[in-house]
Structures are given as structure tokens and as C-alpha cells.
Design a protein around this nucleic acid. Structure first.
Length: 244
DNA sequence: GGGAATGTTCACTA
DNA sequence: CTAGTGAACATTCC
């Protein structure tokens, strides 16, 4: 479920709970003091990268879906392990297999929205500068770095590189700055496109390389080796994506 | 049963 | 101290 645009989509659907008071807050375990949320009014629901932030007067709940997380609005999974369940007068919001945290510090101290590719504050030039500091790493690692491209995930990474015709195993130092800027811009524009597809309930038919077998540009067989620092599956066309 | 897959953090080693 | 490695967690599907 969980790349930036998917979380943004969830956030849009969850806006119906903004301004509502939590009737009941619960979870399968009591590692978090969720009782303090009961009776509190939701002030905002927004995202930072792949995290959903539900803010209250003095506290924020952050939910990260990690790899397997999922949510249900106005529904419960029969045997699911509830990681966070919030009940309101007009419905409920339930999370499973997620990482839930309570944040008491002001959000501006915790998050830098210039790093979030879907934020109005997103700064692609700063991203280029940060990529240059990674030097010896591969470009595919840079795109997954949440301190540079918050919200970009493994699937989006593949699509960005394909659209910019850059080979994932390219050396960061060798990729020209102009091309890096193109990647940064593509990170944002692809994320918004992805969000648009989510809104029309279309799933992944719009992807060009990820999970594909043949390059839509030249018919070459797509390769998908594990690559980079994190050894992630990386779909790419060995022919039309240039290796720097 | 085994192995993957949209992700991240932390303990441990060299 | 730092960089790198491996484990851990969690779920569903084939």
C-alpha cells in the first residue's frame, strides 16, 4: 500500500474526520497511551513522505504503513491486529500492520517539508545538492533516500529513472546536475500523476517498467536485479536507460 | 512450507 | 567513531 501518493490519497479520504472528536482510541496492545486522545478534536490530517499525521491540540499521531500496512475507513478486519483504531461520530479509521507513534514536539522541529516531494515546499534544487554529497553511491540509492526524496518508494523510483532515461546503476557523481534536476522534478510530477490514478481508483496499469516484462519504448526485455545499498529489486530497461 | 514484495530501525561487527 | 551487515518486524499471495 504505502508510497507517498498512496498515503496522500488516504489523507484526502480521511479529511472527513478533521474537526471531529475521538470517541474511542484503541489498539491491540497498550504500548501507547491512546486514552489521552479520547475527547480530543482532530485539528489536521496531513502527510509527510510516507507518513500520515493526525494532529491534535498538543499531540500528533504519526502512522507509517511500512511494507505491509493497510487501513480501513469505516470497516474492521475481522481477525486483524489493530495497531490504531479511532472512532468518531461519523465513522472510524483503522490501521493494521503499521507503525504508530505519538509526537509531542512541534512538527516543524521534527519534519522538514522541503524534502517531501509532494509538499508545496518541495525544493528540487536542494535535492540535487544533497545527491551530490552522496558521491560514491548509485543513483537508485539516492532516490530511495527519505532525507532527500521523502515519499518516493521502490516502485516510484523505477518509474522516475525510466522516464528520465537514466540507468539505476549510474554513479551519482557521473550523472550531470542537469539530469539530477530532471530526476528531482520527475519525482514530484510522477507522484502527482500517481495520486491522480489513485483518485480514479485505477491501480498500476500506468506503470512503465515496474512489474513489466518488456520495455514500452523499444521492446527490450526488462531486467530486475537486486541493486544498491538496500538490495532492492530494480526494474529497468538495459538498453534505453543510459548508464553514467 | 518457502520465498517475495510497495519499508525502516536497531544491534552488532570490523 | 563510523560504515557496513544482518536481523527483526509485519502480511498476503503463489
Amino acid at each position: 500500500m504505502p508510497e507517498g501518493p498512496v498515503i496522500r490519497f488516504l489523507s484526502e479520504k480521511a479529511q472527513v474526520f478533521v474537526g471531529k472528536k475521538v470517541k474511542k482510541a484503541s489498539a491491540i496492545d497498550d504500548s501507547l497511551d491512546l486514552k489521552q486522545l479520547e475527547g480530543q478534536k482532530v485539528t489536521e490530517i496531513k502527510t509527510y513522505g510516507k507518513q500520515l499525521l493526525i494532529t491534535f491540540d498538543k499531540i500528533t499521531v504519526s502512522v507509517h504503513l511500512m511494507l505491509f500496512g493497510y487501513y480501513l475507513i469505516n470497516g474492521k478486519k475481522p481477525n486483524g491486529k489493530l495497531r490504531l483504531g479511532l472512532e468518531f461520530d461519523n465513522g472510524e479509521l483503522n490501521f493494521y500492520a503499521s507503525q504508530v507513534k505519538l509526537i509531542e514536539e512541534p512538527l516543524e522541529e521534527v519534519y522538514d517539508w522541503t524534502v517531501d516531494v509532494m509538499s508545496p515546499k518541495w525544493d528540487p534544487n536542494a535535492a540535487v545538492d544533497k545527491m551530490n554529497k552522496l558521491k560514491k553511491l548509485l543513483i537508485c540509492d539516492a532516490l530511495l533516500d527519505q532525507d532527500i526524496f521523502a515519499g518516493v518508494g521502490n516502485k516510484i523510483k523505477d518509474e522516475i529513472l525510466f522516464n528520465a532515461k537514466v540507468h539505476p546503476a549510474s554513479n551519482i557523481e557521473k550523472v550531470p546536475d542537469k539530469k539530477k534536476k530532471e530526476l528531482a522534478d520527475e519525482a514530484a510530477s510522477f507522484s502527482y500523476k500517481y495520486l491522480g490514478w489513485k483518485r480514479t481508483e485505477v491501480q498500476d496499469e500506468h506503470f512503465s517498467v515496474h512489474w513489466k516484462e518488456i520495455c514500452p519504448r523499444d521492446g527490450t526485455a526488462i531486467e530486475k536485479p537486486k541493486m544498491g545499498k538496500q538490495d532492492r529489486t530494480t526494474y529497468h530497461c538495459p538498453k534505453c536507460q543510459k548508464k553514467y
